[in-house]
């Protein structure tokens, strides 16, 4: 039976002493979505992903693939894979040993597939993990994950510390060789611009709350960025942009819900980058709070 939702969260709260790392998260992630969690440090992205993986106790209702992640973690992990920036593969192991280990403990792992994926990389099967560069270790981890027939993949800052080449390779491998439309992927990263083309949906988080959530298509329809001609500046301003920023001495206007036809005659129009949109929403939230 096809599952409609991979993740369902209602009023999820995680408190540490006096502060809330998660402050009432309501969220539904449909099966097959590639959801990006975007926000500054301390926004609660990793905390939420840890809760999804059953690594944290939270208040509220949380259901992942129809299971309670805390109580049924063992069962859940047969269908969920994860890569986090801090997950360290054991340095004393060889690549072959780690593959055999995963093969021995994971019922959905395909050893031959993993070896086949690795054969296309620079990773030698008999290399010790401690001799691999950070980029190759992440590539090895991704190869392992790609050989697991999982329903949900959780990526928490998976490419942190990698150079540009490895980061690009990571995401292209993920989407071209792994994502088949049925798998659900949750990604949290600071390098938003690199995953923009990968996401189907985005969630903006700040201070343990969801500030905005929508599909990328809807965001592109709803928000437009205008770089007005010099003579159209005042007309653009009169259309009440939700945010104005300056880029290389030129003002860039962000509009919400404004018809594209009204803007095209004023200058260059395009959908905003997710990172810019996020910054605009943060600024707006801040100024509304102050106001």
């Amino acid at each position: 039976m096809e599952r409609e939702f991979a993740v369902k969260a209602k009023g999820v709260i995680k408190s540490y002493d006096d502060s809330h790392a998660l402050n009432g998260i309501d969220l539904e992630v449909r099966s097959g979505q590639v959801m990006g969690f975007i926000g500054p440090n301390g926004a609660g992205k990793s905390t939420f992903l840890q809760a999804v993986l059953g690594l944290l106790n939270t208040e509220g209702e949380l259901e992942v693939l129809g299971l309670d992640p805390r109580k049924e973690r063992h069962k859940l992990l047969q269908k969920v894979c994860s890569i986090t920036d801090v997950a360290v593969l054991p340095k004393w192991m060889t690549v072959e040993q780690v593959l055999k280990y995963v093969d021995g403990v994971h019922p959905r792992f395909n050893l031959e597939k993993a070896k086949s994926i690795l054969s296309k990389t620079d990773i030698k099967i008999n290399s010790k993990i401690k001799t691999l560069s950070r980029g190759l270790v992440v590539q090895l981890h991704l190869s392992i994950v790609m050989a697991i027939d999982a329903e949900l993949l959780v990526l928490d800052e998976p490419t942190l510390g990698l150079d540009l080449v490895y980061r690009k390779e990571f995401y292209s491998q993920l989407i071209e060789d792994y994502y088949d439309g049925n798998k659900t992927i949750l990604i949290s990263t600071h390098q938003v611009e690199e995953i923009e083309g990968v996401l189907s949906d985005a969630i903006f988080m700040n201070q343990g709350r969801i500030v905005m959530k929508d599909s990328i298509d809807a965001i592109n329809e709803r928000f437009l960025e205008l770089r007005p001609n010099q003579e159209s500046l005042e007309r653009a301003r009169s259309l009440k942009p939700m945010h104005i920023r300056t880029e290389l001495g030129r003002e860039v206007f962000l509009f919400e819900g404004t018809e594209i036809d009204k803007l095209t005659e004023l200058g260059e129009v395009r959908p905003p980058f997710i990172a810019d949109l996020f910054m605009a929403i943060m600024d707006k939230t801040k100024s509304e709070g102050q106001g």
């Binding site: 690594l55 063992h74 047969q78 801090v86 997950a87 360290v88 054991p90 340095k91 995963v102 019922p107």
Partner: peptide, 14 residues
């Protein structure tokens, strides 16, 4: 200490 715990616990072993 070496944080391999996160990797071991990411696999379905109780």
């Amino acid at each position: 200490k070496d944080r391999t715990l996160i990797f071991w616990r990411s696999l379905p072993v109780s």
